[in-house]
């Protein structure tokens, strides 16, 4: 399908180009994670994801025991634009090379 030139990975963003229309994992600031199908991106890593699962992790300290209580909230979003400046990490799907 893709020509050799198109599938070559030279720059970090090439990896993302090859992930178009595939499910990726995105870690955002403020302990948020997203998984969704990549439908669009630009060089700032602004992205549009489809069928997104968002996971928000919050850590609270118990008043009495001082133990950390980790809570995760999940929600699904059909279609989502993500601003690139909040992106910490992007993981394309694992592929055999």
């Amino acid at each position: 399908m893709a020509t050799e030139e198109e599938s070559a990975v030279k720059e970090p963003l090439d990896l993302i180009r090859l992930s178009l229309d595939e499910r990726i994992y995105v870690k955002l600031r403020s302990d948020r994670e997203l998984r969704g199908k990549l439908h669009a991106y630009d060089q700032h890593l602004n992205m549009i994801l489809g069928d997104v699962e968002e996971i928000i992790t919050t850590v609270e300290i118990d008043d009495e025991t001082y133990e950390e209580i980790v809570r995760t909230t999940r929600r699904t979003i059909p279609f989502l634009f993500v601003r690139g400046d909040g992106v910490i990490l992007v993981s394309p799907p694992l592929r055999s090379t």
């Binding site: 990726i24 870690k27 998984r35 992790t57 980790v70």
Partner: peptide
């Protein structure tokens, strides 16, 4: 993390800062 998308990510990242 990207190998198995069904893997619950909350466990992966519990108190582990990936970045």
């Amino acid at each position: 993390i990207s190998e198995d998308l069904a893997n619950p990510i909350g466990q992966v990242n519990g108190n582990h800062d990936l970045a």
